[in-house]
Design a protein around this nucleic acid. Sequence first.
DNA 1: TCTAAACTGTATAGCTATAGTCGGGTCAAG
DNA 2: CTTGACCCGACTATAGCTATACAGTTTAGA
Lengths: 181, 181
Amino acid sequence: MSNSKLKSIGQLGKQFSISRSTLIYYDKKGLLKPSSRSEANYRLYTNGDIEKLKLILIYRNGGLSLEEITGLLNSKSGKSTSILTNRLQLLNQEIAKLRQQQQIIVQIIGQSKMLKSTRLLDKDRWVKLLRATGLSDDDMEKWHIEFERAMPEMHQDFLESLGLSQKEIRAIRKQSKQAEA
Amino acid sequence: MSNSKLKSIGQLGKQFSISRSTLIYYDKKGLLKPSSRSEANYRLYTNGDIEKLKLILIYRNGGLSLEEITGLLNSKSGKSTSILTNRLQLLNQEIAKLRQQQQIIVQIIGQSKMLKSTRLLDKDRWVKLLRATGLSDDDMEKWHIEFERAMPEMHQDFLESLGLSQKEIRAIRKQSKQAEA
DNA sequence: TCTAAACTGTATAGCTATAGTCGGGTCAAG
DNA sequence: CTTGACCCGACTATAGCTATACAGTTTAGA
């Protein structure tokens, strides 16, 4: 209807905030080949191409690989569903992995004497850091629970290193243990 | 004390389930250079090297880059803390990103007519899939809430596509709306 | 002792999804 | 006709490895 003029690689790139290199790469990979070329061999993208690109970007935002995207664009629903559910599964694995990494990092920080020796972190700073970093109170509680279950002693040490009183520590640990059940 | 014999690259690899190539790579990068070499120029790792490797692997499990690990091994606590808290921050960003990707994928699945046309998924299979994939009931509830807030109509469509009755759908949506507040 | 397997060395290419850079061609405006 | 903004294809770089090739070394068995 409206915009049926052919677009050059630069215009397209600007419109979707993609670099020229990316578009060339997609062309080479066969993911998005412009439907026509100018006399001087310039790439010319049709509206159809643009729609396809929009789809590609949506899929890309879902974290799908270019190979998977190719599959989605070329195949019918049966295969598509499996690609998508596959991705979903992988996503959860990845999230679980990152969660584990979080724990490991926290352990390292708590374990080393860094905290005590440098006195860089007290409770307030620590909580502030975690909050700034995107963790909700809910998430933090889950951490305590997990921490308590996996390594209670270290949990204790860690809380001590943050300068909490024994009373406070007892309260937190008790709560974490209850919540676990 | 016990094991003070020098180890070859192969032995070390086997012990820690690392490939020879990886060790060579670490050597080249300067991350872990064996303290000595045999007459035939074979790499010989001392106990000290092995301890260092253990540390490296711990850090690696925390998802730290080799560059960051190098930093941690060479520097004192001040810098170390910043590297670690940095990583913590990044981890949360990454997790948030993956969360978003999850949502996008689910939207795509729900949006397309794949479900209806192929009839591949009913509620039970869907729930089973999500559960197998590591999502807790808690997580699923959060999804509904988020889904309801972001795009209520699609939420409705999606639930319909799973074959739920209008009654069930009303219940879920109502609950999601309440929880949001 | 000889030989073959199992090891080691270095060097190189490949993987993903881009970003960026090169030298050179093309096009519109002034 | 020149200037500047575009375009071309090809190449390089990124992280963290893996895999391959080819050559020398060590070790186990016959």
